[in-house]
Write a protein that binds this DNA or RNA. Structure first.
Lengths: 206, 206
DNA sequence: CCTCCACACGAACGACTGTTCGTGTACCAA
DNA sequence: TTGGTACACGAACAGTCGTTCGTGTGGAGG
């Protein structure tokens, strides 16, 4: 039992077709890309009419922005919970935050793929807002690595660069992960945590 | 003197506007994405007419395929040269191949970004051909990691997984690299090599 | 009962898309 | 001179795009 049933990213919001539209948009943007997917695709996926989309979102790019915001909020929340529940040392904090990240990738792979691939099509305020959220994710990792570097738990120089590299590796997971892969969700998370600790040159990891 | 002047990916081919079209297509697909960029954008960038594009490439997707093929060929060539010129041990082979990869990213960042972001819009034979080329890149890394794991130079279990993770981190470089960054091309390459060796748990790296 | 508002629909608009067509020019081979 | 081929162009076609408009329904508040 390795495969997991994909859960919708956005739960019911109490506003008519809103959740259905957001989830259909995620699906469409993921399958065809932002410019490749049409508002008609989204409407069809949401089981409503084309014009009704505009009762919920004023434009296509705003719809993308809302999808990405939902995805990023959920990720940031999970990461903070993981850090708070971990021990005080950088090693266990990093291990837990990596595990949480990988679990999120497995649970909402499509959201992560769309997040990384379609962000660049946002403009104006929508873009800036998401950049801030993304920086928050990076800061979580940077803070932990900096703590570990200060305490001697990590021997890597330039903690900020190392944290970014760890995040790159994790973002890559979303691109190649397949639910029918060899490793279970937990095993994959554990493996990535080991890679991250090794990359940071944590002596305890050996 | 950190910034480097970007060199065109495709040199003159001796066929009228061919090189100009390929480079303009790379530029356009990079700026707006495959579906976001129009054939008119490409024609304008290449300094020719819309209809003339079809004297060189039968369709937009074939144009993308050719751009990606040129990029991948150049990368694969550079990686093989790097491996051949390195020593016989896995550590120096890996260090050299990582350095070559990073240098290619710096020299042709746009090509790498387009490669990773737009591959999925290829279909049919064009897609399969590029998948084969991409697998060749992965195989270069996998072989080295497997060699190092067998010789004891790398202590990481599951060499194939570790190689893929290293490649994910390297692919990430193309996404965030900026020519005006703190590190020079050589320093960046060296840093990524250190990260890769650490991730693979190479005892010599400490 | 009336008003308002949230939600829903089909039809349409103007812009833009990838691609094709017909034509033209220059050069090379016979 | 003739024929062919490579390269180049403007105009047009048929389709799709994001978005707007007008209309309608049904329930909640006065």
């Amino acid at each position: 039992m390795n495969a997991r049933s994909t859960v919708s990213l956005v739960g019911d919001t109490g506003r008519g077709h809103e959740a259905a539209i957001l989830n259909a948009a995620l699906e469409a943007f993921g399958a065809k890309g932002f410019h490749g997917a049409s508002m008609r695709d989204v409407a069809r996926g949401a089981g409503t009419s084309l014009s009704n989309l505009y009762n919920y979102f004023p434009s296509k790019s705003r719809l993308l922005a809302e999808v990405l915001r939902h995805a990023n909020d959920e990720l940031v929340t999970r990461l903070h919970v993981a850090v708070d529940e971990a021990g005080d040392d950088a090693v266990s904090r990093l291990r837990e935050v990596v595990r949480a990240y990988v679990r999120f990738v497995v649970d909402h792979q499509l959201a992560m793929v769309v997040s990384t691939n379609e962000v660049r099509y946002l403009a104006g305020e929508d873009r800036e807002r998401l950049v801030v959220d993304r920086d928050a994710t990076q800061a979580v990792f940077e803070d932990i690595v900096a703590q570990g570097a200060a305490s001697g738990e990590f021997r890597t120089p330039h903690p900020a660069d190392a944290a970014r590299t760890v995040l790159s590796a994790l973002a890559g997971v979303a691109q190649w992960y397949r639910p029918d892969g060899r490793l279970s969700r937990g095993q994959l998370a554990e493996q990535q945590a080991r890679y991250a600790l090794a990359l940071l040159e944590s002596p305890l990891a050996h």
